[in-house]
């Protein structure tokens, strides 16, 4: 059974269902559960659902310490940039402690944050910072692009014995989609082919999956068959699914809301270059421009990838001459 659900509600459904399943899961963050009317608080009580002060280092660090000693905390961080205040805990504590202990401890903590809020939030609240985290062994990074994936990856993140950064694109919060009822777990580290195609592969991340699917629809009207691959997990990355698609189509467009320099697209491009070199005819990256996100709407629109840019990139890789190796 499935029902139509908004992306944001799908995340909440996963958290509630997992908390009902496992009493070791706790959930806290700033400006949540502030009154006794809060539905999570009413369901799970004050010990498991807590309000935290504006103290990201302690919020995340406490989550790590609680995870090391037997709980499974979910830390609500709201906006991914707020993690930057506490980046030692994210980058240099959570993923290191298991390794340094020679596998004696594990750190099953979920760091939940929205990102890429392109609605006039300007330079400090609209960015994509996953590239800073996807190169940290020990840390998992998931970026669901549909309500169903939002639910399934949250369940997987909570059940995972490693620290997982769960990044949800703010721009998808109100999007609706079919979400399976009851227990639904999307495995971490497995990409998903969101649309099958034969002429070109589009690999897109997060909000960009929606734009890539819309672009693919437009291209279909011009008899261009685009395959849309959604990595869903940026670390560890499912290179096999991406490379297999590129080997099939020979041409790839990488769409990423992050700036080009050291984006997820750039990392994926490197994997494709190494693993699909004999079959690859053309590759293009459609990323945000290398700026901060500007406030005013036309400026913001100019910087961030959109359907037109994706369509244009697809056409350009399709017309590009095959390079003789």
């Amino acid at each position: 059974m499935a029902r139509e659900m908004m992306y944001g509600d799908a995340i909440a459904a996963a958290i509630i269902e997992e908390m009902q399943r496992d009493p070791n899961i706790i959930f806290y963050g700033q400006n949540m559960a502030m009154t006794e009317r809060d539905p999570m608080l009413r369901k799970f009580g004050k010990e498991r659902v807590r309000i935290a002060p504006i103290s990201e280092t302690a919020e995340i660090g406490i989550g790590i310490g609680a995870a090391m000693t037997g709980l499974r905390p979910i830390v609500e961080l709201w906006m991914s940039e707020f993690m930057l205040v506490a980046f030692d805990q994210v980058i240099n504590e959570a993923p290191r402690l298991r390794y340094m202990s020679g596998g004696q401890v594990s750190v099953p903590v979920v760091l939940k944050a929205g990102y890429g809020f392109c609605a006039g939030w300007a330079g400090q609240h609209s960015n994509c910072i996953y590239h800073t985290m996807m190169g940290i062994p020990g840390l998992k990074v998931v970026v669901p692009s549909t309500p169903a994936d939002a639910k399934g990856l949250m369940a997987a993140a909570i059940r995972d014995d490693n620290p997982v950064v769960y990044l949800h694109p703010y721009m998808l919060t109100l999007d609706k989609g079919e979400v399976p009822d009851g227990e639904y777990v999307v495995p971490i580290g497995v990409a998903d082919i969101k649309r099958a195609g034969t002429d070109v592969t589009i690999v897109a991340v997060g909000w960009m999956v929606k734009k890539a699917l819309a672009a693919a629809e437009r291209l279909a009207a011009e008899n261009i068959s685009a395959e849309v691959v959604d990595p869903r997990t940026l670390a560890p990355l499912d290179v096999t699914t991406i490379v297999n698609s590129v080997k099939k189509t020979g041409r790839v467009v990488l769409v990423d809301q992050a700036p080009r320099q050291s984006s997820a697209a750039a990392v994926i491009a490197g994997e494709i270059a190494e693993h699909a070199v004999g079959d690859l005819h053309a590759l293009k990256m459609v990323t945000a421009l290398d700026t901060s996100i500007p406030y005013s709407e036309p400026l913001e629109n100019f910087v961030v990838p959109n359907e037109d840019k994706i369509v244009e990139a697809v056409k350009s890789v399709l017309t590009q001459e095959v390079i003789a190796v």
């Binding site: 070791n24 706790i26 010990e47 498991r48 280092t57 302690a58 995340i60 660090g61 406490i62 989550g63 790590i64 310490g65 609680a66 995870a67 090391m68 000693t69 037997g70 709980l71 905390p73 030692d88 805990q89 240099n92 504590e93 402690l97």
Partner: peptide, 17 residues
């Protein structure tokens, strides 16, 4: 200083459990 937060988290576990 960072492990002060971890220790505080361990105390949270003790309290919740």
């Amino acid at each position: 200083g960072q492990s002060i937060a971890h220790a505080t988290g361990a105390a949270l576990t003790a309290q919740v459990k």
